[in-house]
Design a protein around this nucleic acid. Sequence first.
DNA 1: CGCTGATTTCAGTCATTTCTGAAACAACAG
DNA 2: CTGTTGTTTCAGAAATGACTGAAATCAGCG
Lengths: 205, 205
Amino acid sequence: MNLPPLIQSFVLHFGEMGSRWGINRTVGQIYALLYVSPEPLCAEEIVEALGISRSNVSMSLRELQAWNLVVLKHLPNDRRDFFTTPDDVWQILRTLAEERKKREVDPTLSVLREILMQPPGSPRERYAQERMAEMHGLIEQLTTWYEDVKRLETERLANLLSLGSKITRLLETKDRIVTLGRGRKAGKKQAGEQVRLVAPDDGAQ
Amino acid sequence: MNLPPLIQSFVLHFGEMGSRWGINRTVGQIYALLYVSPEPLCAEEIVEALGISRSNVSMSLRELQAWNLVVLKHLPNDRRDFFTTPDDVWQILRTLAEERKKREVDPTLSVLREILMQPPGSPRERYAQERMAEMHGLIEQLTTWYEDVKRLETERLANLLSLGSKITRLLETKDRIVTLGRGRKAGKKQAGEQVRLVAPDDGAQ
DNA sequence: CGCTGATTTCAGTCATTTCTGAAACAACAG
DNA sequence: CTGTTGTTTCAGAAATGACTGAAATCAGCG
């Protein structure tokens, strides 16, 4: 491996991480290398940088393309394929989330649904189905949330993140205010459907 | 493998998923089996159900314990170890998130920080550091959000999820209202610090 | 103690995955 | 068409990871 030390550490770490994930070491390393390279790289450059075989690079790039994690570029007057990663880290995050969902979550949901359709043949299966239903419900809640927030523009998404749990404090407050303002019972938080916000130190308290 | 068909499908699927993840097939299967079993199981029962060696079960249970995904129970007058998974799926989710963060995110953050401390030796390294800084920033935003919301009680967390992106509509609305109500400039969303909520069709519009 | 029943460890075997080099393939220029 | 440059495929080698059985260890109990 023939790389400046800073970059080498990064590449090696991603190789490690890659293998701890489903994706293999080489794929991780190539991705890391592309990520920190200012210009697109061709296969041969990757071979030299990482000291691995040409064919390995080819297969790994293929894998990265299957994940949509890498973009193919062509320079004028050059038949070689050049590769980069998208510039925007948020975009990368989205792609990653989408692909992992597709490969891991969706198949699981469909297996669960299929099993849940079948009539249980014993109390033991009956119980198992209940448990699976719980799991199914949880995953569905999470994916619904995901499907919802993934459409946000990045700036909004970042805002939502930085809000974090604070929003729930607002919900509590809302309950209180609703109670005061209208004599309605608190609790039953059909949360957030069409509430409106008001500036600090304003209005009802 | 000696299991009712419904349960077998589930167990096999989790084995598959396990290997697509870092965790191996057997570990996935054992977890799935424990998850759908109404009573805690001892090692020998797992051996019979899955048709694998005793020592493999022992090692895999060890691994599951390391992940805190499994709880050890002792029945009175029985020296054997019995295992279950926690009942609450939300709790399971929390554990999973926590452990994955510990194993995947934290080490990455620390590698990134370490690399970012070092002076770049070339323009190439300079650029690489910029990219790493972007990645570091993103991961930090995500973990900050995570650290924040993970403390919520389950009910609140579920509410937050079901709100999803709706909350950003509130933020937009807030900007508008703040503008109307106080003549402040919109934009610059130092979002949500101490805003208050008001019931629908109430107050300022 | 030393026996019993249970669990863990570990060295070696087996299986899977990753990686390579050679060969096939593709695109283009002359 | 033929030579050149670049990419992909693929069968087998190398490396890694999973699994097993035998032996070691542990925890109670008479």
